[in-house]
Simulated scan of single mutants.
Amino acid sequence: MSNIERLYDEAENAQVRFVGFVSGNQRYDYGIVYTNLFFGKPLVVCMQTGRSSLFSLEDVDNLEYIQQVFNLRSLEEAQQLALFFRHNLPAQSIESETEM
């Protein structure tokens, strides 16, 4: 245990949103954890697979990344999910919003 260097150990009350929707023949169930950690990027968790990633609006345009992270079958599915993220992720980080 002496070789472990703690990088961070933070506790906060985070806002969590659970969203389920259907697009085409695919059902999506996601949890979005809004936090001040990780530069204000929300943590997006697929409730079906447990796969997760930090996402911002800048990440939404990278369809290959979305497909890989959430193990989607096609770029079309990634495009549908990107459209959802584009309308449901904050335009700016929570940190910037609290400074205003």
Score class of each variant (00 low, 15 high):
Met1Phe: 12
Met1Ala: 12
Ser2Trp: 00
Ser2Val: 05
Asn3Arg: 08
Asn3Lys: 11
Ile4Tyr: 11
Ile4Asn: 07
Glu5Phe: 05
Glu5Arg: 15
Arg6Phe: 07
Tyr8Thr: 06
Tyr8Gly: 01
Tyr8Ser: 08
Tyr8Lys: 11
Asp9Phe: 08
Asp9Gly: 07
Asp9Val: 05
Glu10Val: 12
Glu10Met: 09
Glu10Gly: 00
Glu10Thr: 11
Asn13Trp: 11
Asn13Gln: 14
Asn13Asp: 09
Ala14Gly: 02
Gln15Asn: 06
Gln15Cys: 07
Gln15Ser: 11
Gln15Lys: 15
Val16Trp: 08
Val16Ala: 13
Val16Met: 13
Arg17Ala: 07
Arg17Tyr: 09
Phe18Ser: 06
Val19Ala: 12
Gly20Ile: 00
Gly20Pro: 02
Phe21Gln: 07
Val22Asp: 08
Ser23Cys: 09
Ser23Met: 08
Gly24Met: 03
Asn25Tyr: 11
Asn25Gly: 12
Arg27Ile: 13
Tyr28Asn: 04
Tyr30Met: 11
Gly31Ser: 15
Ile32Ala: 02
Val33Glu: 06
Tyr34Asn: 02
Thr35Phe: 09
Asn36His: 12
Asn36Gly: 15
Asn36Phe: 08
Leu37Lys: 14
Leu37Tyr: 04
Leu37Trp: 00
Leu37Asn: 15
Phe38Lys: 13
Phe39Ser: 06
Phe39Glu: 12
Pro42Ala: 00
Pro42Asp: 02
Val44Met: 00
Val45His: 05
Cys46Lys: 05
Gln48Lys: 04
Gln48Asp: 15
Gly50Glu: 00
Arg51Lys: 11
Arg51Val: 04
Ser52Thr: 05
Ser52His: 09
Ser52Trp: 02
Ser52Gln: 12
Leu54Ser: 09
Phe55Pro: 08
Ser56Lys: 03
Ser56Thr: 14
Ser56Arg: 06
Glu58Gly: 13
Val60His: 03
Val60Thr: 13
Asp61Met: 11
Asn62His: 14
Asn62Met: 04
Leu63Met: 00
Leu63Arg: 00
Leu63Glu: 02
Leu63Pro: 01
Glu64Gln: 15
Glu64Phe: 12
Tyr65His: 07
Ile66Tyr: 04
Ile66His: 02
Ile66Cys: 01
Gln67Arg: 15
Gln68Asn: 06
Val69Cys: 10
Val69Gln: 13
Val69Leu: 05
Phe70Glu: 01
Phe70Ser: 01
Asn71Phe: 13
Leu72Thr: 00
Leu72Glu: 05
Arg73Ala: 13
Arg73Trp: 05
Arg73Phe: 14
Arg73Thr: 07
Ser74Leu: 01
Ser74Asp: 11
Leu75Pro: 10
Glu76Arg: 14
Glu77Asp: 14
Glu77Tyr: 05
Glu77Val: 02
Glu77Phe: 03
Glu77Met: 08
Ala78Arg: 02
Gln79Asp: 14
Gln79Ala: 14
Gln79Lys: 15
Gln79Asn: 13
Gln80Asn: 14
Gln80Glu: 13
Ala82Val: 09
Ala82Gly: 05
Leu83Asn: 08
Leu83Asp: 07
Leu83Ile: 13
Phe84Ala: 01
Phe84Arg: 01
Phe85Pro: 04
Arg86Tyr: 06
Arg86Thr: 11
His87Ser: 10
His87Lys: 07
Asn88Val: 05
Asn88Arg: 04
Leu89Cys: 07
Leu89Val: 07
Leu89Trp: 04
Ala91Phe: 04
Ala91Asn: 11
Ala91Ser: 09
Ser93Asp: 08
Ile94Cys: 08
Ile94Tyr: 03
Glu95Gly: 03
Glu99Cys: 06
Glu99Ser: 09
Met100Ile: 03
